[in-house]
């Protein structure tokens, strides 16, 4: 499926189930999400994490509803399944799409200005460097006997200074490789919107409405 359409669908589904309270639909969405995740052949560790990590907020919300309100077990179940639907539908989109495919699709199909698309892509590719930079900043602090915590302004300050430096370098590098902000571009890899993308998008949303309405009436 076209990446832009896929993410649009995931967000629309998440938005819709935020306002509805039908746990069967949430459960069905989670199962569909899980099946899609399985097609991407995730590692066993990832799969275990996917099951257990949402368990924490999901049970926190459900227990809180049971103990702190009189909304009852049905609503607790709705909140519990809602979290799983969010995570599995979201992961079904993120695990089956690469960031560069999504960005290219957003540029070509959703017509986001190319400076945003490539600026984002360029920065995103620095992700491993950023993770190591956070560790370097904390290690450098420790060497001076200065522990940098999540509430230390220095941690963020140094991170922003590094960002300033890298953004300047990266922007210059891109410009010197011939990237210009307003110029029309040709594409090495074309990402098309096909008729079945529309069909899946509209079809899924219609099905969701029918399911929600049907269970609502019961």
């Amino acid at each position: 499926m076209n990446p832009s359409f896929k993410f649009l669908l995931a967000v629309l589904i998440a938005l819709e189930i935020s306002f509805t309270s039908t746990w069967i639909v949430n459960l069905a969405l989670a199962v569909i999400g899980l099946l899609l995740i399985l097609t991407s052949r995730p590692t066993f560790k990832r799969l275990i994490l996917l099951f257990f990590v949402p368990l924490i907020p999901a049970s926190a919300l459900a227990v809180a509803i049971l103990l702190q309100s009189n909304a009852g077990i049905h609503f607790a179940l709705v909140l519990f399944t809602r979290i799983y639907a969010y995570v599995f539908v979201g992961s079904a989109a993120t695990l089956t799409t690469t960031v560069s495919d999504l960005v290219m699709s957003l540029e070509q199909n959703a017509h986001i200005p190319s400076k945003f698309a490539y600026g984002f892509l360029g920065a995103f590719n620095l992700l491993p460097k950023i993770v190591s930079e956070v560790n370097i900043i904390r290690a450098a602090g420790n060497m001076r006997g200065q522990a940098l915590h999540i509430w230390s302004p220095q941690l963020y300050f140094k991170a922003i200074l590094a960002s300033l430096d890298w953004s300047e370098n990266l922007a210059e590098a891109m410009t010197s490789h011939g990237f210009s902000e307003e110029a029309p571009r040709t594409y090495f890899k074309r990402i098309r919107v096909r008729w079945w993308d529309w069909l899946v998008l509209i079809g899924s949303l219609v099905l969701l409405q029918v399911a929600l309405f049907g269970f609502h009436l019961q």
Binding site: K115, G119, L127, S163, W166, S167, T175
Partner: peptide, 14 residues
């Protein structure tokens, strides 16, 4: 501009 976008994304990634 390109530099702002990259900077914003980098800060966001941090």
């Amino acid at each position: 501009h390109l530099r702002d976008i990259i900077l914003l994304t980098l800060i966001a990634i941090f």
